[in-house]
């Protein structure tokens, strides 16, 4: 197990370096001057050169990359051009909010998906299966930013039950006052993982039910509910792994939902960074989200290997 974990970690190192390189290069394929957002239109050439030196844009690319990585390793992701605040502080504040949203959505999506998938796989080719499969297909096909709008129309505009935007007054806390704001975005965000988990669990359940050991369980006289428990136990590791990856996609892909609901997370930050051409902020946010995704993948792989010994040997 330890060897597997170490091998997996060693394999991640080149990925992390490449991710940093991609994030760095991303900004340098930008058309136009990266300083365009801060420079007043009538700035003198002298001022422009000064600022360029201050942000380090006058150095050769490899040196800039080296410096950027060196600073990043020391927790310094540069300064936001638009606000003048450290990028890391901006990103940290936003990551927490995105986390609240993505984890809530993941829990809802996993619970619903596991339920639909299990009953669909168990009652294959019945109307229950068809219904659950249709819900799953709808879940992965719906433009979620549009679903968000529709839910706002129903629950905020017509019924006036839940707030349409924002995350509540003051800082976040887990009380009704704030959680009212979480319900719509979290439910909207949960439809994609719901659909994917339903499909995965349905296929898994079908596979497991056709294995010999289920036959053996039945022939030794177990009741159907007990057989069901075995099925759940066998399907769980893969389902959790799929969900782990989905959580990564939710964290990285929250921009559309956060824009619809004005949820002040990383997606919202990304959005303003793009439109204010705040390149250090853009770079830093993407880097943090990508590294998080890589890390989550690693954790999922290791956790899966720990639960299911068959994987390690592959």
């Amino acid at each position: 197990m330890l060897v597997y974990v170490l091998r997996r970690i060693v394999y991640v190192i080149p990925i992390v370096v490449s991710v940093a390189l991609v994030c760095f290069l991303l900004v340098h394929i930008t058309p136009g001057d990266p300083l365009v957002a801060v420079l007043p239109p009538d700035a003198s050439a002298e001022l422009a050169a000064q600022l360029r030196a201050a942000y380090g844009f006058d150095q050769p690319l490899p040196v800039q990359f080296g410096l950027w990585v060196w600073h990043a390793l020391h927790g310094n992701l540069g300064t936001s051009i638009a606000t003048g605040r450290p990028v890391l502080a901006e990103v940290t504040a936003a990551v927490g909010n995105t986390f609240i949203l993505a984890v809530s959505a993941a829990i809802i999506g996993f619970a619903l998906g596991a339920f639909f998938g299990l009953i669909a796989g168990y009652f294959r080719n019945t109307w229950v299966d068809k219904l659950a499969t249709s819900i799953a297909v709808a879940g992965v096909s719906v433009p979620h930013y549009w679903l968000g709008m529709v839910l706002v129309i129903i629950f905020s505009v017509w019924l006036n039950w839940l707030p349409a935007v924002g995350m509540g007054p003051g800082g976040w806390s887990w009380d009704w006052e704030h959680m009212r704001f979480l319900i719509l975005p979290a439910v909207t965000m949960s439809v994609i993982p719901m659909g994917i988990v339903t499909r995965t669990v349905r296929a898994l359940t079908g596979d497991i039910l056709s294995q010999d050991f289920v036959e053996a369980l039945r022939s030794k006289g177990l009741r159907e509910t007990q057989v069901f428990r075995h099925v759940v136990k066998n399907a769980l590791p893969t389902a959790i792994a799929v969900m782990g990856l989905q959580l990564g996609y939710l964290l990285g892909g929250s921009i559309l939902i956060e824009t619809v609901f004005s949820w002040p997370g990383t997606g919202f930050l990304l959005n303003s960074a793009i439109f204010q051409r705040d390149l250090p902020l853009l770079q830093g946010t993407i880097l943090v989200l990508a590294l998080f995704f890589v890390f989550l993948n690693l954790v999922v792989d290791i956790a899966q290997a720990a639960i299911d010994p068959r994987i390690k040997r592959a």
Binding site: P14, I15, S18, V19, V22, L26, V27, I29, T30, P31, G248, Y249, L251, G252, G253, I255, L256, L270, A273, I274, L282, I286, L289, A290, F293, V294, N297
Partner: peptide, 24 residues
């Protein structure tokens, strides 16, 4: 395939938005 792996390190929505955001 190792180059492809690097792109897999980004969630697809993030990658699409990052590239579009940078290109304009």
């Amino acid at each position: 395939m190792r180059t492809i792996d690097v792109f897999y390190a980004f969630p697809s929505v993030l990658l699409a938005i990052a590239i579009s955001g940078v290109l304009g």
